[in-house]
Computed example of a mutant assay.
Amino acid sequence: MSSKHDIPDGLNEEYYQISQSILGSFNKYRPPLNIFSFKEDVARVMPYYKVGGRLTNEQIEQLAELTDQGLIFVSRADHPVYVKHISYQLDLVLVDKNLKEKEIADIFAQALTRRLAEFFDQPVPAVFDKLWVDLMVLTEYLYQDIRRSRALVRRLHTEHSLENHSLNCGFLGIGLWSKIKDKGFSEGVKRKTFDRVVAGLFLHDMGMAKVPAFIRDKTKPLTGDERTKVNTHTKTGFEMLNKLNLRYPEVEQCVTEHHERINGTGYPMKSVKQEFAGRLCGIADSFCAMITKRPYAEAKTMMQAAQELAGDARYDREMTKALQSFLVMDMKMKP
């Protein structure tokens, strides 16, 4: 906020102060939400532009000048519109210093759910590239302070769909990882490793995009042939990684090992050797399946699901205990 102007400290509780980067992302003549300016002579925020109108060239020039001076705002009452707008240009969360952590979490949830749905509908390189760009914005944001992942975990979807489940696993997996590492996350985890594990968490079920929707959404027990189709999604996902040129070990582990179990009872290999990313993703995958309502099962509470996993010898005990601790300690904080 500019030091040239005496703007009340509490103003940002009701308004977002916008920068030139944000202003430049709006439609030039018809911004998607109401705009306000701070009038110094009366020390009040006053309407500048109303949705449905059209800015003149003179107003556009004046608006740019006022924005440089830190005098242009949009209302937090328009938060849903603002979230939707920035979700289409996700890198703006890195430059808008007036967004609150919970507001940024809303934006990431909306943007990434939409990107994942687009990718699962068309799992081709051109669509994947857009998803990858947004995932890297997320990792840039979180690598600066991994504690920001707490707000993301509070925004898990409660209804099941492939994209909702994938987003939930990404958010939950990151939060669990932050608890496992506890202190010194950025010192102990290399950035490229972070990028790749995060990508794997979101993409672990990509092979399910090739399973017919009527099987994925079936309310009755699967037939033997249908179960076989579902169980091959890890192999299908691995094959898709080749086509996307995404052959990073951490991503491969999430895709191929999230149904393996440490006692050798999982699939497809029934191997007791699960790498870190595979174990982390396996717990996130099971937990997120348990807390959403599915056609064949009611949702459990987060604590019920975490307790059930902690008592299951098929999962990494250190990780399941960390999950319980994360939920008990961190999730008590305000959203």
Rank of each mutant, 00 (worst) to 15 (best):
F276P: 05
P47V: 09
K102S: 09
L327N: 00
A289Q: 13
F26G: 00
R191M: 09
G282Q: 06
S75G: 09
H258Y: 04
W132L: 10
S21A: 14
Y88A: 02
P268G: 15
C281F: 12
E159S: 07
K97Q: 06
F238C: 02
G53T: 11
I107K: 06
P123R: 12
P125I: 00
K28M: 10
T219C: 07
K97N: 11
R191G: 01
Q253Y: 03
M302C: 08
A305K: 08
S21N: 14
V95S: 15
P80Y: 07
G52A: 05
R216W: 00
Q62E: 03
P32D: 01
D129R: 14
Q307H: 11
R279L: 07
L33I: 00
H79P: 03
E103H: 06
L172G: 00
D121G: 02
M136Y: 07
K270Y: 05
Q110L: 12
E250R: 08
P221L: 11
V51Q: 12
K130H: 05
G207V: 15
F326A: 05
K4L: 09
S87D: 00
T228Y: 01
H259D: 09
L33V: 03
D91I: 01
H204T: 03
Y15P: 09
P212E: 10
R279G: 06
V211L: 04
V51I: 02
K39S: 11
A297M: 14
E298S: 12
Y82R: 01
R317A: 10
N245E: 10
M46G: 01
I7P: 08
E58W: 06
Q144G: 06
K334F: 15
L172N: 01
E103N: 13
L112M: 11
G175N: 03
H204C: 08
V230T: 08
Q122I: 12
V81P: 00
F36K: 04
D285I: 09
K100W: 07
R196H: 09
K50F: 06
L99F: 02
F119Q: 01
E58M: 11
D78P: 15
I262P: 07
D41T: 15
G264C: 14
N34T: 02
T139R: 09
R261H: 11
Y82E: 03
F202N: 03
H157I: 07
H85D: 01
K179H: 05
L131N: 01
A111V: 14
K84D: 04
H157G: 10
Y315A: 05
E163L: 12
S37W: 11
Y267W: 15
T265H: 13
R191W: 01
K300P: 04
A297N: 12
I72N: 02
H258L: 15
M290C: 03
T265F: 07
L152W: 09
S161Q: 04
A199W: 15
V45I: 12
V211E: 05
Y29V: 06
N231R: 13
Y48D: 03
N164P: 08
K273T: 00
F171Q: 10
M46L: 13
R314M: 15
E260S: 15
M290T: 00
R115G: 07
D330L: 06
N34D: 09
N34W: 07
L90I: 01
P80F: 02
M240C: 10
L241I: 00
F194D: 04
G170V: 02
K334S: 08
A306W: 10
I104T: 02
D205L: 11
F36I: 08
V42Y: 14
E58C: 05
M319A: 15
M206Q: 08
G24A: 10
F276C: 00
E159A: 06
L152S: 08
E239R: 13
